[in-house]
Nucleic acid binder design. Structure first.
Lengths: 247, 247
DNA sequence: CGCGGTGTTGAAGGCATTCAATTGTTGTGG
DNA sequence: CCACAACAATTGAATGCCTTCAACACCGCG
């Protein structure tokens, strides 16, 4: 195997010679609208970064130094009230894009929920590219509109669903996203890329309530626990009905 | 008084000769980035529409026919679960922009919370303009990013705040927005542009709970009720602390 | 083995909901 | 101008869901 066989995931943090050719998310990330030539531009400014689960990627109110594609792992965006209460306001899976254009400071706390690999673009240079390649900017605009839609969907969950529906909905969402990442690979189980505490912070619940709903869903045979972080979902339809999407 | 004294608000619904010169939100809406010449383009496709409180502006899953600036009044965006539970996912005040670019169907239910006047642009023609005038598109992108920020802020409220904080936060938000619309005019009171039921749907509460929190805030002298839809806020700082933003 | 982190379970209590009744407001027709 | 209906808002009492606080189980690791 040549050295080019190694994936983006395995490459070094500060390896400046990154090869989008071997990038797993090349054809699904915002990069997909770029021509080979344009991709070369991007290649020159890109830098891979790795984070361990729990690492802070960007603090709130901290200057934004880079944008990034999520190459692997899951990233959480959190907001914290003065008294310490916190709420996760967004989860990013591969090949999501991380970063708010045209803002100098982050309005959220950004952390690695799992081990994470990012494909980073320096702030200023990336914004320059946005102006140079209108279809890249357009793509980013569409991605933002989708994020807005997702946020509003989540507002319904936070405001109007009960604990069981919330947990079911989260599992349903993770299952769908996992299917996308796996690109059709049927694993037979779903990995939960976060702790119960993270789930609670995403759902506006307490850890205890999340845990209780897990055991309840388990006893109803809607899910099966393989281990703490892996579940099996016998019937997605049933799960989606439990999540409040039934008729 | 010449006929040009009449405001946009008073103009007829299907008056094709609209004069942005007299538009109240000319210098605060997304139009503000447009030159006089570009504004002429817009003038040729614009159409004023009026809605009464409670009117449906656009149903969910309905094809999007137009974008619009909110000229006056308040617009609510709602999402509804199959069983009827509903959640307001966004409020639009003047000079907010209404409409999701690059979507053919609305993902939300759009209704007039109060009597509303819209400055409408036909779907296709407006998207053409977006491509013709990059800075208009850019402005819209920024507006979308702000909406996303606002949505996330609201997720914290929905997930982590109690009833008193929720109501206080809503009043605080309305007070701030009203101050912007009033352009510095100190009225001495704040108009509540929605029913208790709307407030409940925005806060993820029931009408009864909202009502109870009103009487509670009133007895704590944090607000004073002038009538059902007008309140006085003696001290904004106190209100913001009650809303959970204290230290 | 013991330790910290993570997850589960139990019991008690509180906050928001639910259901029900009353009051207040608005607009329409007699 | 008043009566009345329809709607909006408030208030009360009881229920229930989720939280809180506490204890215990599980797992990886030094």
């Amino acid at each position: 195997m040549s050295k080019y066989e190694k994936t983006l995931a395995e490459s070094e943090t500060n390896d400046s010679r990154v090869h989008c050719d071997h990038c797993k998310i090349r054809h699904s990330s915002i990069c997909k609208v770029l021509s080979d030539e344009e991709l070369n531009h991007l290649n020159q400014i890109v830098q891979t970064k790795k984070f361990k689960a729990g690492d802070v990627i960007l603090s709130e109110e901290q200057p934004i130094e880079f944008f990034a594609n999520i190459a692997s792992g899951v990233v959480k965006m959190t907001k914290i009230l003065p008294d310490g209460r916190q709420q996760i306001v967004g989860l990013l899976f591969p090949p999501d894009f991380l970063g708010q254009a045209y803002k100098n400071y982050s309005s959220v706390f950004i952390e690695a929920a799992t081990d994470v690999e990012l494909c980073c673009f320096p702030h200023v240079k990336f914004e320059e590219m946005l102006e140079k390649f209108p279809h890249l900017k357009h793509k980013l605009f569409e991605a933002t509109l989708n994020e807005l839609d997702a946020a509003r969907e989540w507002m319904v969950l936070l405001g109007r669903k009960n604990a069981e529906e919330k947990v079911a909905d989260l599992l349903f969402m993770i299952a769908k996203r996992s299917a996308l990442i796996g690109c059709g690979t049927i694993k037979g189980f779903v990995e939960l890329p976060m702790t119960r505490s993270d789930m609670a912070d995403y759902l506006g619940l307490t850890v205890e309530t999340v845990s209780r709903q897990f055991t309840s869903l388990k006893s109803k045979k809607i899910i099966t626990l393989i281990d703490n972080n892996h579940i099996d979902i016998p019937d997605l339809e049933t799960l989606s009905e439990t999540a409040g999407y039934g008729y």
